[in-house]
Design a protein around this nucleic acid. Sequence first.
DNA 1: CCGCTCATGTAACTGGTTACATGATTTA
DNA 2: TAAATCATGTAACCAGTTACATGAGCGG
Lengths: 173, 173
Amino acid sequence: MLEIAVLGVISLHQPCSGYGIRKVFERSPSGHWSGSTGAIYPLLRRLEKEGLIQSALRRGDGRSSRSYRLSRNGKSELVKWLQPPLPDGRDLMPIDPLRVRVRFLGVLSPEQRLAVIHDARATLKQHMAEINSLAEHEKNGDDTLGYLSHRSAILSMKAQLAWLDEVEAMLLK
Amino acid sequence: MLEIAVLGVISLHQPCSGYGIRKVFERSPSGHWSGSTGAIYPLLRRLEKEGLIQSALRRGDGRSSRSYRLSRNGKSELVKWLQPPLPDGRDLMPIDPLRVRVRFLGVLSPEQRLAVIHDARATLKQHMAEINSLAEHEKNGDDTLGYLSHRSAILSMKAQLAWLDEVEAMLLK
DNA sequence: CCGCTCATGTAACTGGTTACATGATTTA
DNA sequence: TAAATCATGTAACCAGTTACATGAGCGG
């Protein structure tokens, strides 16, 4: 997946450096990859060896960096991944840490269970507010798909909050 | 995470075999771990070595299996993981393959983009129907938390469907 | 000139998957 | 009696993280 994400990020920001790609991952609020150097740099060299991306050296002197662009093969690889059919419904459902927690809530005392729910609600609300301000900011910008990605995160957190209400109601019953 | 999930599954089904634990993962519809032998069996031995679980041999003759139970330490490890504070908001957001796809939809033609949306909608609806029938079945059962886990999956898929409507609307605009 | 950001890289590790291998028990 | 299921395990691999290491350029 990181491989595809890197191709995708290059498609959005080309020409860009490995460092630039890392920062995109690091700064993205919708959880995921750390943008660790140990993942990105070896991956970039592999992608270039496979002909999916091309690099050019930017200034051999001093602060030199590689500038990456997507090749035709790289683009068609990305297109191929994007196109239907999508993977199985199960593979579309990521592991939700909150869901896992609630699944095993039975080992806690009733009071502790409620404490977990309350804490989860607070954490979600706060993170939602953060992403919401980002989204508002780019609402009428040119990066529609970036905005929509943030909307996805917002809607999914809203759904989790609604779910937490259900959970609390059933626990109190 | 698999480590915690295994402790959790044992807490729910103890005493149970490694095979039984694997099946729980395999059959769970809310995507995640494959329940691969190469993950479970070494992990179980490690957990026992660490004193988090205990095993007893069930019939040395013929089809023999190990029967696992949670130890006090194992239970308190699970309790510790469950309790607040939850991880950072970012770490609570798993990587959503659908979101990643939409993020990079720009490389496709407008018609292809809509095809992806339509396919995603169909896949989600079908998977939602499957989980929904499971959830209905266990609605008034004793495993409230199992039911709520499925509800979480359902609500999150509903949110994704609503989001896809937003995406389509913005793409058509 | 000090600290921050840009920039690249490696080594050790963790956590998981796939595929293979084995064999007993149950069921159609 | 054949096929499915119960049951356990290993080896090779893949993807990603953490921590370490290095160094240039830029702003206060």
